[in-house]
Computed example of a mutant assay.
Amino acid sequence: MSDLPPEQENDSGSSEMRGHPLHLHNRSQIEKRIASQEARKLKAREEKHHTIWFGLGMFGLIGWSVTIPAVAGALLGMWIDSRWPSRYSWSLMLLIGGIALGCANAWKWIHKEGNVDR
């Protein structure tokens, strides 16, 4: 411990850090990061907020991106089942495959819309 009061101990340590070039470099990076965050927040405030119609449109887009591959898979499966009967149901397998493909497609759209700034 030192005989100096706490105020002087803090000042002596910070004066040593002020002269250190690494400290100035870190300070510059911090200032740049804060400035970019502030600019991003100001931009978000200025942007027009999405309306209910935008939300309904996105809901419809996601719904159709799942529905179309599922229906297409089921129709293709029914066609295969009618031409080449087998022990396995191609309709069911391709319906499940279409749903999986549609869900992956919907996830891609949601992920893309959710990370507009990044």
Rank of each mutant, 00 (worst) to 15 (best):
M1L: 12
S2P: 07
S2C: 11
P6T: 09
Q8G: 00
Q8V: 11
E9Q: 15
S12T: 09
S14F: 14
S15D: 14
M17L: 15
R18D: 08
G19L: 03
P21W: 03
H23Y: 14
H23E: 12
H23G: 08
H25Q: 14
H25G: 00
H25W: 04
N26K: 04
Q29N: 12
E31T: 02
K32G: 01
K32Y: 00
R33C: 04
I34Y: 02
I34H: 03
S36V: 04
Q37N: 10
A39Y: 01
A39K: 07
K41P: 00
L42A: 07
A44V: 06
E47F: 04
E47G: 01
K48M: 03
K48F: 02
H49D: 08
H50G: 13
H50F: 10
H50L: 13
T51W: 01
T51F: 01
G55V: 02
G57S: 14
L61V: 08
L61Q: 05
I62L: 15
I62W: 00
W64Q: 05
W64F: 13
W64Y: 08
S65V: 14
V66E: 08
T67K: 12
I68K: 14
I68G: 10
A72Y: 02
G73D: 02
L75Q: 06
L75K: 03
M78Y: 03
W79R: 01
W79V: 10
I80H: 04
D81E: 07
S82P: 03
R83T: 09
S86M: 10
W90S: 15
S91C: 14
L92W: 10
M93K: 09
M93N: 07
M93V: 00
M93W: 10
L94S: 07
L94P: 03
L95F: 14
L95Y: 10
I96D: 00
I96Y: 03
I96R: 05
I96A: 14
G97N: 09
I99V: 15
L101S: 06
C103P: 00
A104N: 08
W107F: 13
K108E: 05
K108M: 08
K108Y: 10
W109A: 05
H111M: 04
E113L: 09
N115A: 08
N115V: 02
V116C: 00
